[in-house]
Write a protein that binds this DNA or RNA. Structure first.
Length: 210
DNA sequence: GCGACAG
DNA sequence: ATCTTGTCGC
């Protein structure tokens, strides 16, 4: 898995998006059982952020959760729900890191290369890199470094609320990450794509018998 | 050897 | 991620 991540990080491309997305997607998983995952993918219009489509599926999970190898555990389920989507989004949001990862290949990078689509990694907590706490207001941010190289941003998406760790998956740059993440937040800490996916993933877990 | 460690 | 009771703040 380490070899795969090192190879994939070489394929990552950090560059500004050369178009404005019409549809953005978000993914999330919940675990009703130790070895079963409910995966959800939502597609929203941009910049309106109206829900266009939602698909879900249950998948048996083999890999355990091991820090830095999240993509190998959740990747298969994500690929399956994404395949069910009819109105494919042109920008993807993931729960987790992009290149702000020990080997420069977090789950957002992994999926971006697999789908050949721009993606942004939005993690609720820190995994790798050095940073300073950003200001307390929405929009305040600080860069995340690996030595002297910038690998992401710690971004405040809501006043006086814990910041998010945002980094490029691939095919987007740091400014795109911060801008699209902020433009996708509707008064909540998490951007709508991941917030809604998370909502449905938990709702399904309750209303089901797996 | 010790501490950190996405979801 | 999941479990789990109360609690702080707008």
């Amino acid at each position: 898995m380490i070899r795969i991540q090192r190879e994939m990080s070489k394929e990552v491309v950090i560059r500004p998006l050369d178009f404005v997305p019409k549809r953005i997607g978000g993914f999330d998983l919940s675990y009703p059982r130790k070895d079963i995952a409910l995966a959800v993918c939502v597609v929203l219009s941009y910049p309106d952020l109206e829900l266009i489509e939602m698909k879900w599926t249950a998948v048996k999970v083999e890999m355990p959760y091991i820090p830095t190898f999240l993509s190998f555990r959740e990747g298969p389920a994500i690929e399956k729900v994404y395949g069910m989507i009819e109105e494919k989004p042109d920008l993807l949001f993931f729960d987790g890191q992009g290149i702000a990862h020990p080997r420069g290949a977090g789950i957002a990078s992994y999926m971006a290369l697999k789908f050949h689509k721009p993606s942004i990694g939005v993690a609720k907590s820190h995994l790798f890199g050095e940073y300073k706490d950003p200001g307390k207001l929405r929009g305040d941010f600080e860069y995340i470094y690996s030595g002297s190289e910038v690998i992401g941003v710690v971004l405040r998406t809501k006043d006086n609320v814990k910041p998010l760790f945002v980094s490029p998956g691939s095919f987007v740059d740091f400014k795109d990450c911060a801008d699209y993440t902020l433009n996708s937040c509707k008064g909540y800490r998490l951007p709508e794509p991941t917030r809604l996916a998370d909502m449905y993933t938990k709702k399904l877990r309750k209303e089901m018998i797996l």
